[in-house]
Structure formats: structure tokens, C-alpha cells
């Protein structure tokens, strides 16, 4: 395997779970999330020689989020409850409840609001970086973020009590 390919495999292996999860937070659907992450990684690999020395993760993230904003122009309200997570620590019931709650409140947002929330609070990016990745102004990021948080509060931005503690 060429050195560049080996580097890409290492990168993709490390980054794919977060990219898929970010896409899941934006779509609420695991299959769509995996498709979107795959698309982002395809484009990242296609540009690998140009971006490998820079910020390939940022490139992949930007492609992913913009792809999703462009693809889904309405809030996605699918809650794939049949697709239970595999157990890896913690209580599955708690995790399912948290996921359902999270998708429920995120489902009140527009795709762009969701993108801003995911970039700001999942990837922990500063507003200026979010603006660059979405190709909008910092002012737009601030106003979108503020609007999104208002909607999330109205939808009940307080996580459910862990069920396990009540058993």
C-alpha cells in the first residue's frame, strides 16, 4: 500500500466514528449518516494528496456537514428505535432514552441550525471556524446558534433522568 493510502486508512479509521455520529446527529438516521460519512471520506480521499499535510479532518467535516445541509432541507424527524446500540458500557436503556430525547429536540431544528449545533457543541469548534466550514459569516453563525438554542430550550433541553438510578 502506498504511503499516502496508508495514511488515509489511518485517518479514516480514526475519524469515521465521529463523522458518522455527527451525521447521525444531523439526520437521525444511521443509514443516511453512514452514507454521508462515506461520501465525505470519498471526497477526502480524492483530494488526499492536497490536504493530507493540512487539516484533513476539517476538510472531511466540512464536506460532510455541507453535504447534509444541502441534502436535507427540512428537519429530519426519524427516530430509528429499531436500531438499538450495541452495549459498550453504561445502561442501554439510558442510552436509548438519551438518544431518543436528543433526536427529538434536534428534530425541531432546520438543517443549518442542526449543522451549527453539531459543529459548535459536538466538535467544539469556535464560531469563526464554524463560519469558515459552512461558508457563512460569523454573524450568521451567532444568530443561527442563538435561534437553535432557543428552539432546543423550548423543546426541553434538559436530559432525561437516567432510568437505571430509579430501578
Amino acid at each position: 500500500m502506498a504511503r499516502g493510502d496508508a495514511e488515509f486508512v489511518e485517518f479514516a479509521t480514526a475519524a469515521s466514528a465521529r463523522l458518522v455520529h455527527a451525521a447521525f446527529l444531523m439526520t437521525g438516521n444511521h443509514h443516511q449518516a453512514e452514507d454521508a460519512a462515506q461520501t465525505a471520506l470519498v471526497r477526502t480521499y480524492a483530494s488526499w494528496s492536497r490536504i493530507r499535510g493540512g487539516d484533513p479532518y476539517g476538510y472531511a467535516r466540512s464536506v460532510l456537514v455541507n453535504h447534509l445541509v444541502d441534502t436535507w432541507r427540512r428537519p429530519i424527524r426519524e427516530y430509528p428505535t429499531e436500531d438499538l446500540p450495541e452495549r459498550h458500557g453504561g445502561d442501554v436503556a439510558d442510552e436509548v432514552a438519551t438518544r431518543r430525547w436528543l433526536l427529538g429536540i434536534l428534530g425541531t431544528l432546520t438543517p443549518r441550525e442542526r449543522a451549527v449545533v453539531v459543529l459548535r457543541h459536538y466538535f467544539d469548534l469556535p464560531e469563526a471556524q464554524v463560519a469558515r466550514e459552512l461558508d457563512v459569516s460569523v454573524g450568521t453563525v451567532k444568530s443561527t446558534s442563538s435561534r437553535a438554542l432557543e428552539k432546543l430550550r423550548a423543546a426541553g433541553l434538559t436530559a432525561p433522568e437516567p432510568q437505571g438510578s430509579r430501578r
Binding site: 466514528a17 465521529r18 446500540p85 450495541e86 442510552e95 438518544r99 430525547w101 436528543l102
Partner: peptide
Amino acid sequence: AMRVTERA
């Protein structure tokens, strides 16, 4: 919540 629902 966004982090604990990760499925790594």
C-alpha cells in the same frame, strides 16, 4: 448527550 450516544 451528543457524546454519550456515540457508537465508536
